[in-house]
Design a protein around this nucleic acid. Structure first.
Lengths: 236, 236
DNA sequence: GTCTATATGGGGATAGAC
DNA sequence: GTCTATCCCCATATAGAC
């Protein structure tokens, strides 16, 4: 058997299992069973489980983020300095995680789950290297959103980008929840609908007027949504 | 030492550790070290780790969901049949997870993290009992949002509620990400700001016009956000 | 109810033959 | 490069004295 074939089989199996179960819950023995290789091969090719995890991400992370940046470049070139659409920015950020997915099973695409897990598992476990690869994307997209939303205070823009990542990651990482919430009435395999609905949802969210500081007056009806709104203090 | 004191110490330590590290990554040995009790005490009082996890949730879940429903009742009584504010509904859903938090550390409230984790760890691990306790809340809030957003197709409403839970859970579960995205410029300990901003964000998102079906014409500018938007098909 | 001691299994990792 | 056999640690869980 060719060397790289074993390596790839391990990566494929690990990727699939990590995506479905998370890293901690997936043992190397499970991986080698699914890959149909020997346990020692994992350590020969990767050295450790930690290194295997990093290898699984490295294989996908660079192409994913490169594709995001490439699409962002296209958008900004098209605009030629003019304002760009929030929807296009969101699409460029979200869709590559799905488009680049290798094997769609009956469920959601593997890669989607894998990267969803990246953002939802405890941050301490994530090698800095992975976040490093994300730096350019964060910087560039924050800049782009800043230009597209010039009236939004920076603090709130950062917070909203945090929400965007959270919506994307969590919704992809736990597709079961959609079935649960909808009592099975929404097809969780229709990823295209999920993406377009997510973009509609997030674009409107990003365009919301800024939240006023504590105690100040709102420009929209938020009167009951802030500042001890429903008597939290009096209720203890 | 009184019996219940040991039990409570175990629950407190487990809750804190589960919140910070997740369930799989937290061993009983870590729990007993932090609780300063004997290993056997855990099995005496709870029987198993699985049972301990359920006990940790049970202690908080009922009060949390009861508070959510109580606030929803208040809102609907106030409205007396009239339309209710999206912001108030979101507040009633989100805020109890923070208000009921016992010990705010320097970081985000423990309970917030714990329940964030509930929705982000792989669904298979979550005892059905926990989801069962959530059923009433889902049903009641979906109904309320349906009445508040009568023009939104049900399919999309379910999907958006899925996004709402995702935003809340993921944003609370990984507060580090906010610091990362903002390069430390947003104070992640200011939970009140986080909540009000989240409500602003999600209310606007829920109010967005429905996404049009595949290929149809949009009522807002979505022309580039759907349907092979940036040449995904031609790019392979 | 609380402890010590221990059973039992699974985990990652490695040595060394082939 | 691949395999078997094994080391060693850490996990959950239990038995049984106090």
């Amino acid at each position: 058997m060719a060397t790289n074939e074993t390596r790839e089989k391990i990566l494929d199996a690990a990727e699939s299992l990590f995506a479905r179960q998370g890293f901690g819950a997936t043992s190397l023995r499970t991986v080698i069973a699914e890959a149909d290789v020997n346990l020692a091969a994992v350590h020969y090719h990767f050295g450790s489980k930690e290194a295997l995890i990093r290898a699984v991400f490295s294989r996908r992370l660079a192409p994913l983020n490169a594709e995001r940046l490439r699409r962002l470049d296209d958008i900004e070139n098209d605009a030629a300095g003019a304002a760009v659409s929030i929807e296009r920015l969101l699409d460029a950020f979200i869709r590559p995680a799905v488009v680049l997915a290798p094997g769609g099973t009956d469920e959601a695409p593997i890669l989607t789950l894998l990267f969803g897990r990246l953002h939802t598992e405890p941050g301490n476990n994530l090698p800095q290297l992975i976040y490093d690869q994300f730096d350019d994307v964060v910087t560039r997209f924050v800049e782009a959103f800043t230009r597209a939303l010039p009236d939004l205070p920076l603090d709130e823009l950062y917070t909203r980008f945090h929400f965007v990542i959270g919506t994307m990651a969590s919704s992809f990482a736990d597709p079961q929840r959609l079935a649960y919430v909808s009592r099975g009435r929404v097809d969780r395999r229709d990823v295209e609908s999920l993406i377009t609905r997510m973009i509609t949802f997030l674009a409107a969210a990003l365009r919301a007027p800024a939240t006023r500081p504590h105690g100040a007056e709102a420009t929209v009806d938020l009167s009951s949504a802030t500042g001890d709104p429903i008597g939290a203090g009096a209720r203890e």
